[in-house]
């Protein structure tokens, strides 16, 4: 009697496992890769966040890194760190909707296959391909103050020179502006998504006399919600980790462009004392923020419409 009872639970589990093991087999590459290349470094970095590891030795264990991150006394580290978080959040809040809106509009404009559309799409995508190290040089040449190219041209037509990246007041807006040159990348994703909207839906709606905006809001956008969602998550994760500006703008005037990912990098590798432990602690705080935001996005994602598939 007892043997049977045990067997039924174990057996059920085993039978369930046998049915499911094929699923796990598919995921094997990821599991192996994750355990080796990701899990181990992640756990190490979590451990390091409680130490003063400087890439060679650990001398102290404790919560001091986390204490420092939340230390808001005058000159305390917390002030600068959360200023970095604030800057990054501001950047995300402004650039994500702007970017998505602009790349979506661009995709809508380039959707219809007029002659030469392939070449035109390529041309819009070209700025995305410029290597980052070169992009920096180009922008500093163009937007230098007062001798940059744009300022020279403004002067030629009688407008005052703009301080662009040289002034704390204008550097942030300038950065948001030049980020828009990358909308070619987003455009591709939208074009793929727009192709997926079945033409039959449009035809049916047109029979009923639908307007352009009606088409947009009642058919196109709802059908694109999986991609909108994907883009949103991806953009949040990307914007909170923005780093490339460091190569050519450093941390900005008065640290006005000192985003949190850049701060993590300079704490770990910049300067003369590598405070790797503190950098790990900062990274985990950042990770927590991203995780919370993503979690909220998922929990409130009932607006995503997956069509005729499982959800």
């Amino acid at each position: 009697m007892r043997a049977k009872k045990n067997d039924s639970r174990l057996g059920a589990f085993l039978r369930g496992a046998k049915k499911e093991y094929s699923n796990w087999l598919f995921m094997l590459p990821f599991i192996v890769g994750f355990s080796v290349f990701v899990a181990y470094p992640i756990i190490m970095s979590f451990v390091y966040s409680f130490t003063d590891f400087n890439a060679i030795r650990i001398k102290n264990y404790g919560f001091f890194n986390y204490e420092n991150i939340f230390d808001f006394s005058a000159y305390g580290m917390g002030n600068d760190i959360w200023k970095s978080f604030g800057l990054t959040a501001l950047y995300a809040v402004i650039s994500i909707p702007l970017n998505m809106f602009l790349s979506f509009t661009l995709a809508m404009a380039l959707r219809k296959a007029i002659p030469g559309i392939r070449g035109i799409r390529l041309l819009f995508y070209l700025p995305v391909l410029i290597p980052g190290i070169v992009m920096g040089q180009i922008w500093t040449d163009m937007l230098g103050h007062p001798e940059g190219l744009i300022n020279q041209w403004l002067g030629a037509i009688g407008l005052p020179a703009n301080t662009f990246f040289s002034s704390e007041k204008t550097q942030f807006a300038t950065l948001i502006a030049i980020s828009q040159w990358g909308i070619g990348g987003g455009m591709i994703v939208w074009l793929a998504a727009l192709e997926n909207v079945p033409k039959t839906l449009y035809e049916a709606a047109e029979m009923d006399g639908i307007t352009f905006f009606g088409k947009l809001f009642k058919i196109t956008l709802p059908m694109c919600t999986p991609i909108i969602f994907y883009n949103l998550i991806g953009s949040i994760i990307g914007a909170l980790q923005v780093f490339d500006t460091y190569a050519y703008l450093g941390t900005g005037q008065n640290n006005g462009l000192y985003f949190i990912s850049i701060r993590i990098y300079t704490t770990a590798f910049g300067g003369r004392v590598h405070d790797y432990g503190l950098a790990c602690a900062l990274a985990w705080v950042l990770f927590a923020v991203i995780a919370v935001l993503t979690g909220i996005m998922f929990k409130t994602s009932s607006w995503v419409f997956y069509g005729d598939s499982k959800q």
Binding site: I43, M44, F46, V47, T51, R57, I58, K59, Y61
Partner: peptide, 17 residues
């Protein structure tokens, strides 16, 4: 699992201090 691993790793690293 995390706690166990953390302890293991910490023990391994402590030897370097």
């Amino acid at each position: 699992v995390c706690c166990a691993l953390t302890l293991c790793v910490a023990a391994g690293c402590g030897g370097n201090g």
